[in-house]
Structures are given as C-alpha cells and as structure tokens.
Design a protein around this nucleic acid. Structure first.
Lengths: 163, 163
DNA sequence: GGCGGTGCTGAATGGAATTCGGTCGTCATG
DNA sequence: CATGACGACCGAATTCCATTCAGCACCGCC
C-alpha cells in the first residue's frame, strides 16, 4: 500500500462519510480513480466497514468499564470470546499478555446492570473478573496518523533495522 | 429519544454509510422524515460523527496496548489528557477508578515504537506507566443493542428545548 | 375554534455514486 | 524491438441519493 491509499484511509478514518468527490480533491485523483481505490481497500479488508460514532450517555449506556477476566480452570479450553459474544453489552474483547487473559470493554446502563453483566460473564465463560470503571473519557476513537513511509502490514518489510 | 431514533442509531452504528433510502425502508418512514431525524440526532450530539473502521495490521500499526498511568507527583494538577493529546498513537484516553488514574489505548508499529511511546508518555505527563500488550482482538467496535425501553440518558428534553 | 409547534409525506432538484469505454505506461515475453 | 497483458488512470453517461420545499395532520394550549 502506498501513499495515496494511506491518505485515503486516514481521511476516511476521520470522516467515514466523506464523498468520493472530496476524496478526489484531497488526493488529486479523479473521482473514479478514488472510487476504484476505496473499493479495493474495502475488498482487501484494509477498510473493514463504516460506523457512526454515538454518544453512549445519550442513548442510555452511560457506564463504561473494562473487565479483565481470568479462567477459573486454567486447563479448560480457552473459548471465552465465543462464549461471551452473545452479550451485546461487550463492545470489544482483547486477548492480552499478563496476569489476566482477556480485557473486555463493556457499556451498560447502570451499576446494577454492570453487576448483572459481570455475573453473566462469569457464568458464561467460567472466569473470574476484575473490573475497572471508567469515570470519564477525555477522548476516544481518534484516527491514527499513518506514517508516510513503510509499506505497512501484511507482507514483509521493516526498515528500522532488521537486526 | 424514542423507538425510531433508537433504531436509526443502531443501524447507523452498524453501518455508518447506510443510505437514507435504506434507513427509511427499515424504519417505515419516508426518506425525508428519516433525514430530518438523523440531522437532529447529529445536532443533538447523539451521533457524534462517522468513521471508517480500519484494519490496523494492514496499515502498519499491528501492535495494540493498554497503558495505565499514575501520576508521579499526586499533588500536581491532573491534566494528563491534554498533555498527551499530541501523541497520535494514543487512540483513546479514559479516566478510571482504581489504583491508576487513566487507561490509554495505543497503536504502534513495533515493540520499539511502543518503548519510544512509553517514554514520551512518561515525559509528557510526568507519570509512571503499566502496559498490557494486546495479543489478538477477537472482536472490537461492536454496535450496542439499545434497549427498547428507557428514555435514554440525558435530560434530552422534549421539544421546546432551549437548544 | 384558532394558533403555534412538531413530525410526517411526496415531489423536485442538484449533486454524488457507480459504471463503462478508452488511454497510457510498465513489464514480461517472443 | 514488437506485442500483448495488466494495472491505473481519466472523462462521460447513467442511475441513485441527499437535500430542500411545500403542504397536511396532529397535538397541546389559550
């Protein structure tokens, strides 16, 4: 992936509804060239989709928390993500290094709802939980700045010294 | 906020580029009615924007981590979010309850880049850091399921609202 | 019952998305 | 060196969508 694609991705990450016309102006390409590139980025999975960013306070889910989970039986097969997928309050699930095995990001309506969710998590995945409540969120969903160099990702390549 | 708005928000959270035509079909309203509602949701800040969801692996930022920070001088004014805002590798900053004061979500190109970022964080905000590296992400950015009841959060006020 | 506010519909218009044909440069091959 | 396949681009044509604009129905209120 090269420069122009990176620029397109950056722009779309910042404004997922930017028109092809505007993208064309920003990149100096024709509308159809940009269209072609965006389509390709989508097909390749570089752009995985588009989403509205919503204010969780305003939709009745004002309480955010991080829930770290640890299996109660370390010998059991680790399929926590699938076991938890049905809980729609879980926005994200990351497998992590460290003492615990996963960190979940959850959004709920109230402390009581959080309590209930934690029970469901423990029951569904047979894990213990450690919860960190979010008090406020100064910022979130910031678009990354894609470095101008690199050929980014997939294939080989590295430039900051192989050894 | 009531039923139809909640439905619109859910749909847009799932597909930020859904056309008004499709939204109209899904909600049973006319195109212009939906248009009006979406505009209002945007103006009220319920929908805060739109973003492309990108594959960080594919754009050269394959390493994600959570960085918990704690002020070195607890007496100093706590303006860490502003002090850190310039670091574009930081995707999100949450103020949290518990031992540490903030949790940052960061995306970098490599372990070396992470090391460098951590130094910048410590230097910029005068904090100590504790880092949890993400090994994989089973899922992320899942759209919430907005419960049908509730009058959802805010005082969002009837119609003769001041705003 | 009249009035203002709100939300809806349907039509009109301008602009954008998408498709298509054609051009150009690159590269591998004969 | 010719040639043909490929990939990327452009511009125009077409279709679709966003946005605007009346006009109407439904309150709640005086």
């Amino acid at each position: 992936m090269e420069e122009i694609d990176r620029r397109i991705v950056t722009l779309l990450a910042r404004d997922g509804r930017m028109s092809f016309t505007d993208l064309a102006r920003e990149t100096g390409l024709s509308v159809s060239a940009v269209h072609q590139r965006v389509r390709r980025l989508e097909k390749r999975g570089v752009v995985r989709g588009y989403a509205a960013i919503i204010d969780h306070d305003a939709v009745g889910l004002p309480l955010t928390a991080f829930v770290s989970i640890k299996p109660i039986d370390p010998a059991a097969p680790d399929d926590a993500p699938e076991r938890l997928a049905h809980l729609s309050a879980i926005e994200a699930c990351h497998s992590v290094a460290g003492d615990e095995s996963y960190i979940l990001k959850v959004r709920v309506a109230s402390p009581v709802a959080l309590e209930d969710l934690l029970q469901q998590i423990r029951a569904s995945a047979n894990v213990s939980t450690r919860t960190t409540v979010v008090l406020s969120t100064p910022y979130e969903h910031r678009a990354p700045e894609l470095a101008p160099s690199e050929e980014a990702g997939e294939p080989e390549a590295r430039q900051d010294g192989i050894a």
